[in-house]
């Protein structure tokens, strides 16, 4: 009976006691859904010694938190984590269950969906509900075409989706919010586990640095060729920004894949984003449209990139970019040339 299923759940991903940004964003998005459906918003937290995080989760919009705390849950592992999730989901039957589209979130959601025999929509970028049917409308860029597809899961519950990081907005942290914290016992034994995490290694790869960069200079096929694309690197160096690009330039071999921005690449929200020689296909847009300040340089006045740009320059990048490089070199001199760290 799908009517038994009620409530909106968000999987709270934590790594070494730190909550992933996307989980907080999902609490923001989940709050809206829960209010529309007039049900509770629940955060689901697994890990070892993580109870301390529950107030944070409530402060970001949850009405209640289910927490499963167990040594075996110290590091993320599909088998142990999905046992925890299955335990809760089968007992409390949520109607909607959201996960961040992170490596772990996708991994967990895929496994859970299989065991719950329900539908899972991947890499969602828009969420809404159809009230009278109580249907989750999870939308993502459709394959090819500049179109979005809304995926529905009519006959199965919970309705699950993984959501791209940095597309939803987290709520302001409000320490005065209150909510219940429910602890669940789980019986797990390390010796039953068929996978062991020997160690976790943080390394700030280029990719990570692109994700965190305040300023990103991204180039597209419009730079003409590999040579022309070097202007993008020069500008980035002059500014002290990170470089990114479209899939087409990655396919052309001008840039490594980890610097691809968009649906099948990184989603980023820098403070300043230069889109140079980029047409602005939706698969690219979804990866950068939430940047604070977007500057588009394109010689085609009708290029869709201008629709998402804060400021647009219609012109030849090969002529404009060198001038920008000059300007920034000047600016840098003014600042005494030294590199200031932010």
């Amino acid at each position: 009976m799908i009517e038994e299923y009620r409530g909106v759940w968000v999987f709270i991903e934590q790594n070494e006691g730190e909550i992933e940004g996307v989980s907080l964003e999902l609490l923001g998005a989940g709050r809206k859904l829960a209010d529309k459906l007039e049900v509770a918003l629940t955060g689901v937290l697994l890990g070892e010694n993580v109870k301390a995080l529950c107030p944070e989760i409530i402060a970001h919009g949850a009405d209640e938190v289910y927490v499963v705390d167990h040594p075996v849950l110290k590091d993320y592992r599909t088998e142990s984590y999905m046992k925890g999730i299955m335990l809760l989901a089968e007992k409390y039957k949520p109607e909607i269950f959201l996960y961040g589209a992170t490596p772990n979130g996708k991994d967990l959601a895929s496994a859970v969906a299989t065991d719950l025999n329900t539908g899972l929509t991947a890499d969602t970028t828009m969420l809404d509900v159809d009230l009278e049917k109580r249907l989750l409308e999870a939308s993502r860029p459709a394959f090819g075409g500049n179109i979005m597809a809304t995926i529905l899961c009519k006959k199965h519950r919970p309705q699950m989706a993984t959501v791209r990081p940095k597309v939803m907005k987290a709520l302001e942290r409000d320490v005065n919010r209150t909510g219940n914290i429910i602890e669940e016992e789980i019986d797990l034994k390390e010796e039953d586990m068929r996978t062991k995490v020997l160690k976790n290694v943080k390394d700030i790869t280029k990719k990570a640095s692109l994700a965190d960069a305040h300023v990103v200079v991204a180039g597209g096929k419009g730079m003409g060729d590999f040579q022309g694309f070097q202007l993008i690197h020069e500008l980035a160096d002059a500014i002290g920004a990170s470089v990114g690009g479209t899939r087409d330039v990655v396919e052309a071999g001008w840039l490594p894949h980890e610097l691809q921005i968009g649906q099948t690449g990184e989603t980023i929200t820098p403070k300043v984003y230069f889109a140079i020689g980029i047409s602005g296909a939706i698969q690219h847009i979804v990866g950068m449209k939430n940047s604070e300040f977007i500057i588009a340089i394109n010689k085609d006045p009708n290029a869709p990139i201008f629709d998402v740009a804060t400021y647009g320059i219609v012109g030849d990048a090969l002529e404009i970019v060198p001038k920008l490089i000059e300007q920034f070199k000047e600016l840098r001199k003014e600042k005494g040339g030294e590199v200031s760290y932010v």
Binding site: N117, A142, M148, A149, T150, I151, C153, K289, F306, G312
Partner: peptide
Amino acid sequence: PTIVGKMFTPPKPEGG
């Protein structure tokens, strides 16, 4: 369990 509901072009931002 999943089916494609509607297909639509995302609302066009007015641009800067």
